[in-house]
Design a protein around this nucleic acid. Structure first.
Length: 587
DNA sequence: GCCGTTTTCGGCCCGACTGTTTTCAGTCG
């Protein structure tokens, strides 16, 4: 580090840091006894900041943070305070009054801000340790509204750690496999009329906390009891007269709700969520004199409750078109004049990211090409790892030359599929690629990815990525942010600069279909497509049996509001081929 | 604290469950 003569300008806080500060302030105001709507306003603002693809700090400095939904003049000023001084005065003041351990108390099941505050005010309890000690000495029951049962509950929760750590999440592919197996079994039950997956699994989120299933039956209690007898279920208990909560042997919680067939649409709509979508939907409905619940839609003027067997009719009565589950996140779907026709797996005509035995794949070029053709594809790019990949899976320049010949030979021999000689080239820390340009120029396709040196500064990593995007022989960027869902954060990256550069240069950005990656994510992919970036949907298959992982890539694309038009590999080969940068540069 | 086909104030989803309580506030999804 050089010795700075000028004072170092304060680095802008990331959107994540701003969102965390707003969430904390919401927690503090809640302890302070603020009305619930004010607290909700902070949480909703935090969500808007987290979802934003532009730098909210930069937006606030330009006086434009109020363009984000749920952020007004007051919150913009608080964000500005955070940027310029490093903290929000209101938060500092409240932190002095409420010890940090107090917020931990509200994480316990059954203990919210109101009751935590009373424990603090009346017994001086300011941490989980203090709570445990008070419970052990039976001092909690002295408080009006608290009793022996509560003390037992506290000690049990502290012993198991329940609620103290965030519940483990499970990736969508595993969750849906289990959900679909359970649904199949329940559908076979004689009391079942309809059984569907609901909740976040139906919305195809990155990962889920639990499974929500919805069923219609003329004998709801009978079907709810049937859940307990499936062989994947370890334990199950009734929740109300027409529901059950179960645990699979793999530890996944399953919630089943059964309703009357004529109300199935209402129940499915309610339990699909998201919470934010439903809340906004209901607020809009109230303005029309309608009250929406999982049981029906109550017409305030007449007192009549309307039941709907079909979800489409729920939306229709609210004056809305059917909204695909993937769009139900309150990200504009209720206000949109028209909703997009979302891309499907069947729209895909090719796959531009796959591996063979030349690097870490399990199948040969020919096997991969035949499997791609069997899927109905017109083209497949073979993109093994490059010279510096390591793990014994690197492809030296000399080996790549041989591989190009092999691909061309297979391509000449096979009818009905265009096989591209490609590479997944490493982007080195300085932004250079690990093959010479002369060799890259002999390929039909290059997708460039970062596989090393993840912990660079945002500026350095963004410059590194931009160098690759500017390279005339880089056709696309693979898994652009490097995240692994719930396991590894994306590397620091100014995604706006990446998107702008990709749009300007015609470099395609991938949504990688590996269920651990799904990278770009939904929010970034939507911003990229909106900026005119050509989006690729790839499997990153390492064998013939994983070409189908495009399912997860399509799931993310649909959550990103993408139409087939915005996904470049929905084009037939003769229209895709000329869009490659290398072709456009040559032409 | 935000927001507007109830526009600058007065609203801001809906229902179930829990524990402790004689009618409900708080919590949760």
């Amino acid at each position: 580090m050089s010795v700075a003569t000028d004072p170092e300008p304060r680095a802008d806080p990331s959107n994540g840091a701003i969102a965390a500060a707003l969430d904390e302030l919401g927690d503090l105001y809640e302890l302070d006894g603020a009305i619930v709507h004010r607290v909700v306003a902070y949480r909703s603002a935090a969500r808007a900041v987290r979802d934003a693809t532009v730098s909210v700090a930069a937006l606030a400095r330009a006086g434009r943070a109020t363009e984000l939904p749920g952020i007004g003049r007051t919150l913009e000023q608080k964000i500005l305070d955070l940027i310029t001084t490093g903290s929000i005065p209101a938060a500092a003041k409240l932190r002095a009054r409420f010890p940090p351990g107090l917020i931990d108390l509200t994480r316990l099941p059954g203990l919210g801000p109101k009751r935590a505050r009373r424990l603090f005010d009346e017994l001086g309890i300011d941490s989980l340790d203090a709570l445990r000690e008070a419970a052990e000495h039976q001092r909690l029951r002295e408080l009006r509204g608290f009793g022996a049962r509560f003390e037992e509950g506290v000690l049990a929760a502290l012993a198991t750690g329940e609620g103290l750590r965030p519940a483990p999440r499970i990736l969508l592919n595993r969750a849906l496999a289990m959900a679909e197996a359970i649904v199949d079994r329940l559908r076979a039950h004689p009391a079942a009329e309809r059984v569907e997956v609901a909740g976040s699994a139906r919305r195809l989120t990155d990962s889920v906390k639990d499974l929500d299933l919805v069923a219609a039956s003329p004998r709801p209690d009978e079907l709810a009891r049937a859940l307990a007898h499936l062989d994947m279920i370890e334990t199950s208990q009734a929740t109300g007269p027409a529901g059950a909560r179960a645990r699979t042997h793999s530890g996944l919680t399953v919630e089943l709700r059964v309703g009357a067939p004529e109300q199935f649409g209402n129940l499915l709509q309610h339990l699909t969520g998201s919470k934010a979508h439903n809340q906004a939907l209901r607020e809009a409905a109230v303005r029309r004199g309608l009250h929406v619940s999982e049981y029906g839609i109550l017409e305030a003027a007449t007192g009549v409750e309307h039941h709907h067997a079909r979800e489409e009719d729920v939306y229709a009565q609210l004056g809305l078109p059917y909204i695909e589950p993937e769009l139900r996140e309150n990200r504009g779907e209720l206000e949109a004049a028209a909703l997009p026709q979302l891309v499907t797996v069947d729209d895909l005509r090719g796959d531009l990211h796959s591996h063979t035995v030349a690097s870490d794949g399990r199948n040969t070029i020919e096997q991969m090409a035949l499997a791609a053709r069997d899927r109905g594809y017109e083209y497949l790019a073979v993109t093994d790892h490059s010279a510096t990949h390591g793990f014994g899976n690197d492809v030296s320049p000399a080996e790549l030359e041989v591989q190009i010949e092999r691909v061309h030979e297979v391509n000449a021999r096979l009818e009905g599929i265009e096989v591209l000689a490609g590479s997944e080239v490493n982007i080195l820390p300085d932004g250079a690629l690990d093959y010479e340009d002369e060799l890259l120029a002999r390929l039909d396709w290059v997708i460039a990815s970062v596989h090393t040196a993840f912990s660079m500064s945002e500026r350095a990593m963004t410059d590194r990525m931009l160098a690759a995007i500017e390279h005339p022989l880089v056709d696309a960027i693979g898994h652009p942010t490097g995240r692994l869902i719930d396991r590894r954060s994306p590397y620091a990256l100014d995604i706006d600069r990446v998107i702008a550069a990709a749009a300007r240069t015609g470099t395609m950005l991938e949504i990688n279909g590996n269920p651990d990656r799904r990278d770009l994510n939904d929010v970034h992919a939507r911003a990229a497509a909106r900026a005119g970036v050509r989006i690729l949907i790839d499997s990153d298959a390492h064998g013939t049996n994983t070409l189908g992982m495009v399912r997860w890539s399509v799931a993310t694309a649909r959550r990103a509001w993408l139409t087939a038009d915005q996904v470049v590999n929905t084009l037939p080969w003769d229209r895709f081929a000329p869009l490659r940068k290398r072709v456009r540069a040559a032409g």
